[in-house]
Design a protein around this nucleic acid. Sequence first.
DNA 1: TATTTACGTCAGCCATATTGACATATTTTG
DNA 2: CAAAATATGTCAATATGGCTGACGTAAATA
Lengths: 169, 169
Amino acid sequence: MADVNIRGASSPVSTAVAGAPGPAWDLIELLFFAYRDFVGDADAVLAEFGFGRAHHRVLHFVHRNPGIKVADLLDILKITKQSLGRVLKQLVDEGYVIQKEGEIDRRQRLLYVTGKGKDLALKLANLQTERIARALAHAGPQVRESACRFLSAMVDADSRDQVLRMIAR
Amino acid sequence: MADVNIRGASSPVSTAVAGAPGPAWDLIELLFFAYRDFVGDADAVLAEFGFGRAHHRVLHFVHRNPGIKVADLLDILKITKQSLGRVLKQLVDEGYVIQKEGEIDRRQRLLYVTGKGKDLALKLANLQTERIARALAHAGPQVRESACRFLSAMVDADSRDQVLRMIAR
DNA sequence: TATTTACGTCAGCCATATTGACATATTTTG
DNA sequence: CAAAATATGTCAATATGGCTGACGTAAATA
């Protein structure tokens, strides 16, 4: 079970790379199932706090980018300011996130997590990290680097550098 | 740019595996961004047909599992029959999916894609395969196997065998 | 025959996304 | 300085895709 035979690089379906296509069913479906279970971990915890996945995403990126501008957060999440507005307001009202006026540009509302916000962000990140650690233990830790390379190459070329810069901190 | 330095296996953050944790920020965020852009590809096409992501998922799994029972589809998607009902009805009404009475058990409504359904399913899968092919070309095709191993290990242990069996066809 | 199963459906609710319009404060530019 | 552009917030309406709970029907099974 440890070395599962998921069409290795030599199997017919994986020739998508080489140019004799046929859809890459394996990666298409693995991405679906892996992501489904990956985001599922946090749901139970979020429910206790009366939050949903949208709150998680906002909290996560504010935690990871202290002092981020609203506009930049919108760009990361690729949602509208109206959609962000609602969840952000809840996070602020309940004391998980604070907004500070920008010192240079006072139109900006720079976002920071509070102590409470940090605690929740870390609690959720630790849950997800546990799944990742189990996965690496199971698949062999040497797959880590390749998995990172593959996933970063899956990001739109436009945003890839920005994403890698954020991660590299 | 081809070999991006995303914290290799020796960097401090990646010690999550070894037991000196700290959240695995890199993989957490790469999964988010990779999936965001991966599912985004299909959206424009789906909009032309008046469908959404829910229709895509149903169409995909019916296409890949001809004759699947409603109950099994629910199990894969992890949604309720009421949620499935709405999108499935649209796909049936508009001629992308057909339901056949089971021959052995006539209570079952076995699901199949029509020609039209197959065309759309393949159109969407090809879009996603193109992104995967570009990613593999960029990251180096040798990462494919590791990426598959990692992603399958990320799936819940409960459903992993079932998922791998589906993919292995 | 009685029960269970597979599926469908009605009704209502919730979370999260959208578009479009408009308001306010502040910075930048001509 | 006045005008324009920018950063953000907000109101209103709408769509999508989840959910629970209740109920119905046909067919298989005990």
